[in-house]
Each structure stands twice: as structure tokens, then as C-alpha cells.
């Protein structure tokens, strides 16, 4: 990659001052911060004030079958700054039986649908989300299909419809 992202070391230093030492890592120019779940909202709010005004994405990874994974679900917040072009990845790890994170909709309106999607596909509950409903799957669907214990072909939901023949129509 000929282009390297702008450094975020000053932000990380401020973050350590404010919240104590957090686990950080660097991979190919991308900086990641692992934040404990109770602190997640405060850290993200602080980062927004530091200039990370654009929430690129909220997503989740299910580490059920991942080697040497300590937690089941890892949330990913991708932040970017429109002024300085810095990028920062914030990771929050949660576990069964009731994976819950505080919603960031009050910080970024963009998180509304992204969090609904994570709830739909992974079953992570976002507290104080204004409208936490399923986004892409039908409302009567019960599973969370992107979890690793859900099979690719599904559990037969896709065949469960009435058949219309020429005689019916």
C-alpha cells in the first residue's frame, strides 16, 4: 500500500490519559483500540469530541470458531475524521448469554440502522436504542443468521411457504 493513513498516536495518548491504559494494536496502518464494554459509550463519545465525526460502520464478528478467541462477539466501530482523514477502529467484546452494549445512536444518527442490523444478524442487544427491531430479516424470524452456529442453508425457513398452482389462481 503506497499510502499510509495519518497517525493517531496523539489521540491514543489522550485516550490513555482519560480512561487508563487500553489495549491497542497496529495492523497495516490501521490502529485498533480494545475498549471494555462498560466504557464503550464514554470512549466513543470522547472520540467523537476529538474529531472522529464520521461513523463509517458498526458491525460484529462472531468468534465462536476462531482460534484463541477469548470472547464470543467482537463489535467493530469504524471511525473516521472528515477534517484530518484519520481512521480508528474501536473493538468492544461481549459474551453470551445476553450480549449487550450501550447504543451510540445519540452520538451518531448513522448508528441507528447499523445497530439494528447487528441486532438482527447477531442478536447483540443495544440498550437505549430508540427503535431496536429487525432490519433485514422478516419480523417473524427467530434466529440470528450470521452467528456461526447458524447453518449457511438455514434451517428450512426458506421452504416454508404455501404453494400456488394454476388451479389456485
Amino acid at each position: 500500500m503506497p499510502y499510509t493513513l495519518p497517525s493517531v498516536t496523539d489521540v491514543l495518548a489522550g485516550l490513555t490519559n482519560r480512561f487508563g491504559s487500553l489495549e491497542t494494536s497496529l495492523n497495516r496502518g490501521q490502529t485498533r483500540v480494545v475498549v471494555p464494554e462498560p466504557l464503550s459509550f464514554d470512549v466513543l463519545a470522547w472520540l467523537k469530541n476529538q474529531g472522529f465525526d464520521l461513523l463509517i460502520d458498526v458491525t460484529c464478528v462472531d468468534y465462536l470458531e476462531y482460534k484463541a478467541a477469548k470472547h464470543r462477539y467482537g463489535l467493530v466501530y469504524l471511525l473516521a475524521s472528515t477534517a484530518t482523514n484519520q481512521r480508528l477502529t474501536v473493538r468492544v467484546f461481549v459474551d453470551d448469554p445476553d450480549p449487550t452494549v450501550k447504543s451510540v445512536v445519540s452520538l451518531w444518527e448513522a448508528a441507528n440502522w447499523l445497530e439494528r442490523e447487528v441486532w438482527d444478524l447477531f442478536g447483540i442487544r443495544f440498550t437505549s436504542h430508540p427503535d431496536l427491531r429487525r432490519l433485514v430479516m422478516p419480523d417473524e424470524f427467530t434466529a440470528h443468521p450470521l452467528r456461526k452456529d447458524y447453518p449457511l442453508q438455514g434451517r428450512g425457513e426458506r421452504h416454508n411457504f404455501p404453494v400456488i398452482t394454476r388451479d389456485h389462481s
Partner: peptide, 8 residues
């Protein structure tokens, strides 16, 4: 502009 950034 503000809404555009806030809403991603």
C-alpha cells in the same frame, strides 16, 4: 453538511 456527516 452537519447532518450528512452525522448520518454517515
Amino acid at each position: 453538511k452537519e447532518e450528512a456527516i452525522n448520518r454517515g
